[in-house]
Write a protein that binds this DNA or RNA. Structure first.
Lengths: 339, 339
DNA sequence: TTCGCGCGCGAAAACGTTTACGTTCGCCGC
DNA sequence: GCGGCGAACGTAAACGTTTTCGCGCGCGAA
């Protein structure tokens, strides 16, 4: 293995000069820099990462702590994180699929000293947990978290706004008089925000109409079950808004089984825009979230915090999302008919 | 920050004893071990990773070099890698979305010294590339690679076997007399293997019938285009096998547009079992690959190699896949009709 | 001429571990 | 009683960097 000493010897200078030259510090003439550079590349010198971070106390690595999430969401998030990290010369250490909070704690502890900062996405993580498991010197940005603390940056998808916008679309633009809502698990922050958006939009765009919330669990099966209860009522709703796409899929299957036409007999909308959404028949109207952007922003926020030596104030911010109109909401039907 | 010295001082022993005690080496009495352990946890001592790997020359981290792949494949692979890594106390450094080979090279170089070993999945990586960019001391296992070299472990999905099995199903069990094949990009190793499986099965199960291969690019659009050319022929095929699911999706849309019923008028099969597959109408018959298992195996292979000081011989191995019969191949039609 | 100052550079300390090598001591066999 | 030996433990070197400090020197200003 070739070390900095070999380069120094070959160049006839001290190791200090080599270090300075290669790191672009001042105190070495341009000619010497050039010579050292040339020799370093010729010898294929690569600085020893551990030795360097032993003294600089920087790893140039950021950790991603993720729950057991699947499919597109996961890969899009990593894609965003990875791209932004590479652009800044940082590395990405991932640790995913933590079902339990204990697992997350050990994972967090194991990352200790390996990372300069953390991106944390976990529905169960709260402030006390972080205080207990995260050394306060390590900066962290929390994704989709209910935590509001000056100690951490928080970056959320605008679940409230997205749900509100979808409801606006259904009630005002498509013209449904009433919309039922299939909610997500109560413990989930995203789910709560989406329901809040539903309720707010109902009171605004359908004043006097009572909210109609059926519980779900973010799974296809729970969506199917929720749809079944809705259809079992004497007055079945003419439009259903599911708090995520998987439940919307469950609803769609239940509706088809019941012989209902979507969207003519019953309209449907989801949330997330998973890739499946556009391949359903009919394609699912839903709310798109730019996951990769979320990851990118998170990493950039973190990188800034690492560069800034002083503590600029931590902030909570949200990332917008947009309504994608496809086949299930009945928008074409309304547009086709004369206004 | 609390170091090993603090623990030593508190326990009234030397740093050497602390190191030995905490690492489970012999040469220290059980009572002392216990005392040191207790003090270490009380002081929340965490060994400094960089200092340790500076001298042990181990990072306990493995790197994953991945191309720009999307969706389920990516996340499933990482899931498998991550689980196996965690089980062995290893960490996972990912670097993904490398379109060009140059990008992959810099990524590989940047991982130098940060990882003990590598899992590499990249259609473009070949032996010369690895020799040039990978220090030969770093073990690597290659995923879905055409490389056959004693220097590297190779772990492949059994694309040949999967394609062969699907063709056997279509020709023999469903009873199609002929099947057309939409191939993938020629540069892609997976694609070539799948085509090889198609051809072999044709000569075996449909001797005398000529192979019928239409080029595709693994994209939905190319699948749509391929289907259009097939339908434009005077004698359109009664069954089509697409080299991956996305192209099958494209075919399905083309068939529907042409007013054909699937599978009554034309049968269809894909390869990969992406999540979309089961939500298509009708659900897509395809070949399932256990991606997470692939990741798990890769990491375990690598971990073994790291533990084994001597060079056990490197091997090339394949991971099986299975035919999943759904709606598009026409199997129920045949089964419903009297044999 | 002289003083000071900045620049280029080298020597060496420091970072926190692991581990090779001593040293002490108790014990066992003769 | 004595030599030898192994167990328990300490000392210090080593890993490869970065960075502080100091030194010499050239140059501009007084």
């Amino acid at each position: 293995m070739v070390t900095i000493k070999d380069v120094a010897r070959e160049a006839g200078v001290s190791v200090a000069s080599v270090s300075r030259a290669l790191n672009g510090h001042r105190g070495v003439t341009p000619e010497t820099v050039e010579r050292i550079r040339e020799i370093a590349t010729r010898l294929r010198y690569v600085p020893h990462v551990a030795a360097r971070s032993l003294i600089t106390r920087r790893t140039h690595t950021i950790g991603a702590l993720l729950p057991d999430l699947h499919g597109e969401f996961f890969s899009e998030l990593i894609r965003g994180l990875d791209q932004a990290a590479r652009a800044r010369g940082l590395h990405l250490l991932v640790s995913s699929s933590h079902d339990s909070i204990e697992e997350a704690a050990t994972a967090l502890r194991a990352m200790q000293g390996r990372v300069d900062g953390l991106v944390i996405l976990s529905p169960r993580v709260d402030a006390p947990f972080l205080r207990a498991n995260l050394p306060e010197t390590t900066p962290a940005v929390l994704l989709n978290s209910a935590v509001r603390s000056p100690a951490y940056d928080v970056l959320n998808v605008d679940n409230y706004g997205g749900a509100y916008a979808m409801m606006r679309h259904l009630l005002r633009e498509v013209g449904h008089a009433h919309v039922a809502f299939v909610s997500g698990p109560a413990a989930n922050f995203d789910a709560r925000e989406r329901e809040r958006g539903y309720r707010a939009a109902m009171t605004h765009y359908a004043p006097g109409v009572a909210c109609d919330v059926v519980p779900g669990e973010f799974t296809e099966e729970s969506g199917y079950a929720a749809a079944t209860t809705l259809l079992g009522r004497p007055d079945r709703p003419r439009a259903v808004f599911a708090a995520n796409d998987m439940m919307a899929v469950g609803c769609l299957y239940a509706f088809k089984e019941a012989g209902l036409r979507v969207p003519e007999d019953i309209a449907l909308a989801g949330f997330d825009d998973i890739p499946i959404a556009r391949y359903l028949t009919p394609p699912l109207t839903t709310v798109r979230v730019r996951i990769a952007d979320l990851g990118r922003s998170a990493l950039e926020r973190l990188a800034e915090r690492l560069d800034a030596t002083d503590g600029s104030p931590n902030v909570a911010d949200t990332l917008g999302c947009e309504v994608v109109v496809r086949g299930t909401c009945g928008a074409e039907l309304t547009n086709a008919s004369p206004a």
